[in-house]
Amino acid sequence: MKRLLFVVLLIGTGVLSAAEIPPVQKLLPAANAVKGFKLVPGSLIYAKGDDLSKIYDGGYELYTKNGVIDAARQMYQREKDYVEVTMHTMKSDKAAADFLSYWLKENKVKSASKSSGTTFFVVTKPNVTLYFVKRRYFGTVAAFYAEERAKKDVASFRDAISKLIVSR
């Protein structure tokens, strides 16, 4: 009986832990979702509301004012290549689209493209960064290495995340 109770408690704890993971954090690709990229241990950050300062320091108010509810960030590594993925839950689909427009303007990019159900654009200076939205999620994928390789990788991350959004 005690053993059964222990097993039930164990399963219950596991279910509870899984349930506590914020939805936005579940959009961060797993290790090797993009071939060769591992998670950088200790790099995961989740923050909500004013706690977004943990991700953006003093810059966080720009995000909250534009409708970011919460965000999760994870670093990935493939040998010496680093990729940083940050996913944000926006207060609405419109807020997500508007925020992408803000970044378009900020980066002086004329228009966004569409692929895998996402609307996105890429800037390549000073490093390759992809900005994208899908539904009420706004994301950035930044890669810090040779441009052509980085452009392929950020697109792969975008596709991996897009699949996770579909499945939700």
Partner: peptide
């Protein structure tokens, strides 16, 4: 020049 403090932004 833009998107500080962390960037990425124009430099």
């Amino acid at each position: 020049l833009t998107n500080g403090p962390k960037g990425p932004g124009r430099t």
